[in-house]
Design a protein around this nucleic acid. Structure first.
Length: 205
DNA sequence: GCTAAGATGGACT
DNA sequence: GTCCATCTTAGCC
């Protein structure tokens, strides 16, 4: 698909993000995540997410209240929360709900749809550029952030602005699977991981 | 002040 | 399958 076809779509607006975290998580699937950087675009279709809530969720970074790291979770729907995971990888979240709600949706995987060669360059390690359209390019929260060049400088970014935003794509009817979340030990019983069934870019494990 | 655990990924057996 | 890199936080001395 041409870049102009993506950019003709409307951005998700503040009303979309201000709803409850599980609703937003489910509705983020299939939409186009966009990072515009120095004039070039990286675009991915969101295929896997997890919801985290301050209310009833011990696995959420916000559960015990505000810290320096999680402050942007309290900015209200339509912001980005980026944190450093295991001291190594960045993870990107979409903040939802009202100001001070402390809820957010972790983006676990996207399907690359535009700017794939730049994503492959961003995922270079040991001087080896990643093979394009390999599923390992973006099939995990840290991999997605690296491919889209998202780091702590993007923490608290406003998703209604010009750098990072999400474009509407409601057209396709995909089968959505709901499961327990991955890689956590508390509140494991909550069914708050959602992914598109037929996507090969859904994370492993 | 110290230590353990963590919303992970990559290298290796 | 196992191991480990390395930063933040919480909980305990």
């Amino acid at each position: 698909m041409e870049l102009s076809e993506f950019l003709a779509r409307p951005k998700l607006n503040i009303e979309f993000y201000k709803r409850d975290v599980v609703t937003v998580a489910q509705n983020l699937l299939n939409q186009y995540f966009v990072h515009k950087e120095s004039g070039s675009y990286l675009i991915g279709k969101i295929v896997e997410v997890e919801a985290y809530s301050k209310i009833d969720d011990e696995a959420s970074h916000s559960f015990k209240g505000r810290t320096k790291r999680n402050a942007s979770m309290f900015l209200g729907g339509g912001h980005l929360y980026v944190y450093l995971s295991y001291g190594i990888n960045y993870c990107a979240n979409i903040v939802t709900g009202e100001i001070e709600a402390g809820d957010a949706v972790l983006i676990r995987a996207v399907e690359p749809v535009y700017g794939v060669s730049k994503m492959a360059i961003n995922r270079t390690s040991n001087n080896v550029v990643f093979k394009e359209m390999n599923r390992d390019l973006t099939n995990g929260p840290g991999k997605f952030s690296k491919a889209f060049n998202i780091n702590l400088t993007h923490d608290a970014e406003n998703l209604l602005g010009e750098n990072i935003f999400i474009l509407e794509n409601y057209s396709l009817r995909e089968e959505i699977i709901s499961t327990e979340r991955i890689g956590i030990s508390k509140s494991k019983n909550l069914i708050r991981r959602f992914y598109i069934n037929n996507s090969k870019f859904v994370s492993k494990r």
